[in-house]
Design a protein around this nucleic acid. Structure first.
Lengths: 163, 163
DNA sequence: ACGATATGATTGACACGTCAATTGGAGGAC
DNA sequence: GTCCTCCAATTGACGTGTCAATCATATCGT
């Protein structure tokens, strides 16, 4: 337990030390990246990644409005998460909630001018940050490889239907 | 804004649609992976990734005890985060806090038998899950590529010293 | 029409994370 | 010894995320 006993690589089920190192590099780097991007978005635009995802979906939506459940599905969130988040965004004036005409249970989420403005201001710096922190860090080959790795992982993960 | 206007690729600063797709695949997959692993750890061992990190560091420490600030540095957390987390773990009996003999300001974090037991029970399933979800999903080449991508991203990100 | 059930959305409780402010001892200058 | 400053750690406020429970409306079967 305390020594690095030579692995019986006869092939039971545990990753080797090298595989584990790669795993940690991978997941920690992804985290560091997400965290840096979050911090830039926050300081440059006063938006969280969640805010950005919601505003992006809304600004692409017909009439800048969506049914709450469609929005949740579109960005892959649980309804409960969206509901909490919309509450916070509504307090800040980024969105507004209206009753749905078609279904009295439903709610429609509407982009406010304030929200649209915040999104416009955030888009360019955000995309630039992605380019700086991700795209520019990799060679074209590495970028392609990253894409393939992601696809392979997702395929192995997702047959059960997760997103 | 609503049409996909042909990008002036004359090379300003924004990622192309393809680069953006890879970025999203990458970051969302990493998230999905983290989330699935978290969920397994939780259901199989009733531990969060944070708990696991703390218990791992403590169980490797001399005497199963560490100064709080060393622990924070070891797992790369802010002190405040650790403090909050230790509070929750202490309530569950996984660790204990003692005053440091050497420095009356300091605190020592001690692994309890309960905590040691929880960690023992969690280790094997957790490593197996990493193998199943990550290692087994990739060809050896892809695994190596994932490692290189992580290193390149970190290098580009970290010269300033982030972790 | 009416009761059972399904669905859209919200709520409450709680874990987790960050930031800023605070507490209280350590250590140096004098 | 007395300040002043530094440092370890905690605390409070608040945003974020999950899970389970709740509420109200729709909808289906009869």
């Amino acid at each position: 337990m305390t020594e690095n006993t030579p692995q019986r690589r006869s092939g039971r089920q545990l990753p080797t030390a090298e595989q584990l190192r790669i795993w940690r590099d991978f997941i920690e780097t992804a985290d560091a990246l997400r965290s840096e991007l979050t911090s830039r978005l926050q300081t440059e635009s006063a938006l969280s990644p969640g805010d950005y995802a919601v505003l992006l979906a809304l600004s692409e939506a017909d009439g800048s409005r969506m049914r709450s459940s469609e929005l949740a599905a579109g960005i892959g969130w649980q309804r409960s998460r969206l509901s909490h988040h919309l509450g916070r965004m509504e307090r800040r004036g980024l969105i507004r909630r209206e009753e749905s005409a078609a279904d009295n249970r439903g709610a429609e989420v509407v982009l406010t001018p304030t929200g649209a403005e915040a999104f416009r201001g955030a888009t360019y710096p955000h995309l630039r940050a992605i380019r700086e922190l991700f795209v520019d860090a990799l060679t074209p080959d590495q970028l392609a490889a990253a894409g393939e790795v992601a696809v392979a992982l997702r395929a192995h993960l997702g047959p059960s239907g997760k997103v």
